[in-house]
Design a protein around this nucleic acid. Structure first.
Lengths: 191, 191
DNA sequence: CGAGTTAGTCTACAACCGTAGACAAGGAGA
DNA sequence: TCTCCTTGTCTACGGTTGTAGACTAACTCG
């Protein structure tokens, strides 16, 4: 029986990961130190390096964890014939007032000032989101159209969640969908 | 006669300010050090404190300078009949490479984690950008359409300058303009 | 019960940060 | 030419950062 293990590698690792994710979302990659992250997990700073090798590797694992979670750009959504309508609806729904934290985007944004974090973030976005989207949007300028789709998604997130523009936070979801759908339809079809 | 003054307080102060502005836009407030800023101005780190008192005061002065500048969203541009094409061209041109006149957006964005710059940023965007855009885009859902225009502008900036997505950084400017113009045209006309 | 592996801590280091004070050099007026 | 203020550099200090190595405590297995 191990009902109360005082030494649990799995739990400690998860605690460090959770504390790091919260810290990165709050203050960015450079804004939070390994000592603070470790303190939030109830351990010493050196445990970060023991479990993850370095702060940069820890950040990469946080990003991987975020990327593995379900997002707007699921395979099912992308390959559906009414992709434009689906992504508009999902984007409006997910960025609704304080429903989901979506700390992943905040982490990317606030950590972008660090060169290390920016490289990690760009590689993950290119690998997980942009590549899949480019394949789905066949035709001319597919990579550029995919990138613009991602830009609109991120822009709506910034205006609605980071800056909390009242025109978007207080808007009728149906109106927003109606405004966003033609934009995505425009980008889905090849020029 | 003072044709080539080797000691010029005004020029040195301006050089420090310019270097700081570029540094803050590139790496964020915490990401750039006073030594690096001073080196960009061709002086020593201590000149920053001599001219501006502290790094924080220097940042405040950079923000003040940005706030005092005219923006792209001038009334003349917004009320022009080909506004959609103008803003698309401007956006592509401005996010292209080197020094950007819109670096204020990047500075605000990257400083939104620790400071109260997020509040300042929202107020400024609502007061200067969003209000003017809403008035120009008359018709139904004008505030929402204006906000989406700003969202696309910020999204392109994030993807192109913050995350440096290669599909956008390496893209042909003409192609990007051709992809963005119909989006803005869609938003300019009332639904 | 002893040995070995694992989980965790402690101390320390080299590098960087913002900043303070003392000091050298240029420039203008007497 | 002497003097004085301005402009700039040099050295240094306390603090924090990420990380490395040695060490201790706990759990497991033979």
């Amino acid at each position: 029986m191990a009902e109360t293990r005082r030494r649990d590698a799995v739990a400690t690792r998860a605690a460090i990961l959770a504390s790091a994710r919260a810290g990165f979302a709050r203050s960015g990659y450079d804004g939070v130190g390994v000592r603070e992250i470790a303190e939030g997990a109830g351990v010493t700073a050196m445990m970060v390096n023991r479990y993850f090798g370095s702060k940069e590797h820890l950040f990469a694992e946080v990003v991987d964890q975020i990327m593995a979670e379900p997002t707007i750009l699921t395979r099912a959504n992308i390959e559906a014939p009414d992709f434009a309508d689906r992504i508009a609806a999902n984007l409006v729904e997910i960025t609704a007032g304080g429903a989901t934290p979506l700390d992943g985007f905040l982490i990317m944004l606030r950590s972008s000032s660090s060169d290390q974090a920016a490289v990690v973030g760009r590689e993950r976005i290119e690998a997980h989101y942009h590549r899949v989207l480019t394949e789905a949007l066949a035709g001319d300028l597919a990579p550029q159209r995919a990138a613009i789709v991602l830009a609109i998604v991120s822009g709506i997130q910034v205006m609605r969640q980071v800056l909390a523009l009242s025109a978007l936070t207080d808007a009728d979801p149906a109106d927003l969908r109606a405004l966003l759908e033609p934009l995505f339809r425009q980008l889905v079809k090849a020029p």
